[in-house]
């Protein structure tokens, strides 16, 4: 019972948060939660290929950057519709993910990790060199994108609710796919590729499809991030950002439904709280990582989930 109503309760609480926040002087945290939700989208997409598909990609931030720079390119060309920009970002990053996946998925393990890293580094240097979009200094989106439909601009609380809706829908969608025929085939590929190939499954295409979908979702997260920050710079794609996403997914719990949201919530909240108190906010997080690897190898979601098995 508790398990069944929990997601809806959480959604309700998150939806009411911007209305309640001003009463407690928490307005700043509306922006924080909005950022958190965007990171959750990206982390959930990485959990989809890493947790269910066993593909350890160290270049996921590259797709976030592709989505963000798609928005920048459209705004620079005078385009102002948020829906159009987000849809374009989804399609463009899907195309990038398909191209990168087509090459990288021919390798495995560490070599796959290094190839995805290499491609995201290429995207990083490409962004640094795009002087029309600010190069190293980044690009400020001074006017917010417009939503139409009487919703006004993509900013403030409206953007918060939209991000929440998109995050909830994508979360439900990816978790639905994870328990579909395709999802089980993907898990089969994670466990034993040779056996799945012998059973007649198109192993390469299964991985390729999952990788492309994950890249597209990460790109959408990037587009939302561009609207959230109103600023885009190559540092979005730095390899430590990809590593942070990997960290979030692993400490949350690989291949677990609530792993990525839990990991993102714990990681970002801890960082935010520690930054309040000290300049030295990295080392406690580092210590946390080591302790989780030692004592909770299956991630935090596994600690909470007393059934002990992934769905």
């Amino acid at each position: 019972m508790l398990i069944r109503i929990f997601p809806w309760t959480l959604l309700l609480v998150l939806a009411l948060f911007p209305l309640v926040a001003p009463l407690f002087d928490f307005t700043y945290y509306v922006g924080f939660v909005r950022h958190l939700l965007i990171v959750m989208i990206a982390a959930t997409s990485l959990n989809f290929i890493l947790g269910y598909g066993g593909m350890a990609a160290l270049g996921h931030a590259g797709f976030i950057g592709v989505g963000a720079y798609t928005v920048v390119a459209l705004v620079d060309a005078g385009f102002t519709s948020a829906w159009g920009a987000w849809a374009t970002a989804l399609i463009v990053s899907a195309a990038f993910a398909a191209a990168i996946g087509a090459v990288s998925l021919r390798t495995q393990g560490v070599y796959f990790l290094m190839l995805t890293l290499a491609f995201s580094q290429m995207l990083y240097y490409l962004a640094v060199s795009l002087r029309t979009y600010g190069g190293d200094d980044g690009y400020g989106l001074h006017t917010p994108l417009t939503l139409g439909l009487g919703l006004g601009d993509a900013q403030g609380r409206i953007l918060y609710w939209l991000v929440l809706a998109i995050a909830a829908l994508l979360f439900a969608f990816l978790n639905r796919v994870a328990v579909s025929r395709f999802g089980y085939a993907l898990r089969g590929v994670r466990e034993n590729e040779t056996r799945m190939a012998a059973l007649g499954y198109p192993v390469y295409w299964i991985k390729f499809t999952a990788f492309t979908v994950a890249g597209a979702v990460a790109g959408l997260a990037g587009a939302l991030l561009a609207c959230h920050n109103r600023f885009v710079s190559p540092s979005l794609m730095h390899w430590t950002e990809s590593a942070t996403l990997l960290v979030i997914v692993v400490i949350g719990g690989l291949g677990r439904r609530w792993g990525a949201p839990l990991g993102a919530a714990v990681w970002l909240t801890l960082a935010e709280v520690l930054k309040l108190y000290t300049d030295y906010w990295r080392w406690p997080l580092g210590l946390l990582l080591i302790l989780i690897v030692f004592f909770a190898p299956k991630g935090m979601a596994a600690l909470l989930d007393n059934r002990g098995k992934s769905p």
């Binding site: 590593a243 990997l246 960290v247 400490i251 990295r282 990582l289 690897v293």
Partner: peptide, 17 residues
Amino acid sequence: HLAQVIATFGIILIADD
């Protein structure tokens, strides 16, 4: 490898601070 990446990334964070 993933556990190793996470733990040694933790060492990086501690060393930097």
